[in-house]
Amino acid sequence: MGKKRLTMRRKESIYGYIFVLPWIIGFLAFTAGPLVFSFAASFTNYNITSQMDFIGGENYKGLFTEDSLFWTSLWNTLYFVLFSVPLTTIGAIFLSALLNQDMPGIRFFRTLYYLPAVLSGVGVYMLWMQLLDPGTGMVNLVLSWFGIDGPNWLFDPNWTKPSLIFMKLWSVGGAMLLYLASMQGVSKNLYEAAEIDGANTWRKFFHITIPMITPVIFFDVVTSLIGGFQIFQEAYVMSNNGEGGPANSLLFYNLYMWKQAFTNFNMGYAMAMSWILFVIVFILTIFNLKLAPRWVHYEGEEK
């Protein structure tokens, strides 16, 4: 009897593997393969077309000791992540809390705030470049109604990164939808019970809503952290010639890596850069996962 069950299980697991096989092959060929190749090539002077000689840790050594642009780009990226991740998370939660009210016409507002998430890519960046124009842009025009002399946004190195963070805040609709869905899933019983106990709106929000949506917050923080480190397009499109903005203030890690790989053809060097970023993100994610049990609440979880 026991033996038969085992074969059954084995059969099922074989079926399982057959079903996921396309994905496994895809992963091995298009993700794991290049991943390992890039690791190996990061110890070479690979330039895509003509050379691939082993040079040991030269690339890594050069990055840490001789390359000031590496540190600039790392700093720019950290700055962006440090501000954009918390701000967009809080922004999205705040927005979804507002849109979680029962009132006539709420569907209209939900659609409205979600719209920016539908629009994406280069078109949006172009639009924001016009909005943020210091002389003729809408943003400074609106600020001037309140007597505020708006900054030079994308032309002032101190304001370029805040400009991008500002733009990111505008498109929190995607994350907002996740929060909204999970807020709608919070059981009404909990709120009713709290009301009977005399809890006010704030207490309900902080002691019921927030704990109940922590799995989604966790997911959002992890993915936007990884996404934040990979910022590239925004800087490539929104700075003059894709150069990385005034005084290199938009030279993000991936932009610099791209320039090394495809304009200077230092592919090995760029691969070393990508592995450093990988390690940074990996450590942060592990850290996040370790920290998660302390604050993420899963319903029905056995302790």
């Binding site: 496994i24 091995l28 060929a29 794991a32 393969g33 290049p34 390992v36 190749f37 190996a40 090539a41 690979y46 895509i48 077309t49 003509s50 050379q51 691939m52």
Partner: peptide, 18 residues
């Protein structure tokens, strides 16, 4: 084994280009 195979193949491609 599959992993090793893929790595081996991708390695080949790398050297071919040079």
């Amino acid at each position: 084994v599959l992993t090793a195979l893929v790595l081996f193949l991708s390695g080949c491609a790398g050297f071919q280009t040079s």
